[in-house]
Amino acid sequence: MFDTIFEFFQRLMGKERENTRTTARERLRLVLIHDRSSVSPQLMESLRADLLEVITRYMEIDSGNMELMLERHDGSVALAASIPVINIRRTPVPSAEPAKRIKESEPVDKSDAPKPVEAKPEEEIKAERTTTPPAAATVRSRRRKAAQSASAIAKKRVKKSSGKRKKNRP
């Protein structure tokens, strides 16, 4: 009988069990970010095209080697982009007249670019990207001297903005 009373008071205090509703909601939110992106590659493809359009206004990039993916960390999903930068423009191209894009099929001729000694090999850069914690997720652009053949790494956290469904989902 005392157990019943004890349980009743615990219930009144609202302390008796953890809030699994919030846990369920958060797990669902994260898994759906992943589901939706993998189920609809067109969505990621159109994001990639839009990103390319904006970035090429500021930098010349090797769009053929651009990588875009969602990475899962504990309790959050990050949009990770690896975009090799060839050159940075002195002044951005105005948005009204978008910069001429580099065709994906066109091989980027790196031979005429001066080969910087301090440039990291591609593998090393990738490794660094995957080990970067999401907390340090801001645009980590490389210094200009290294920029000529290195990658600019952009990470954007999508934790807060993820819930909305894209209406034009194909």
Binding site: G14, N19, R21, R25, G163, K164
Partner: peptide
């Protein structure tokens, strides 16, 4: 739902929109 142990209508509506 009130006890925080089941997804609410608002939770589901928010997730599925």
């Amino acid at each position: 739902v009130k006890k925080g142990q089941m997804l609410s209508i608002d939770d589901i509506r928010g997730i599925l929109s």
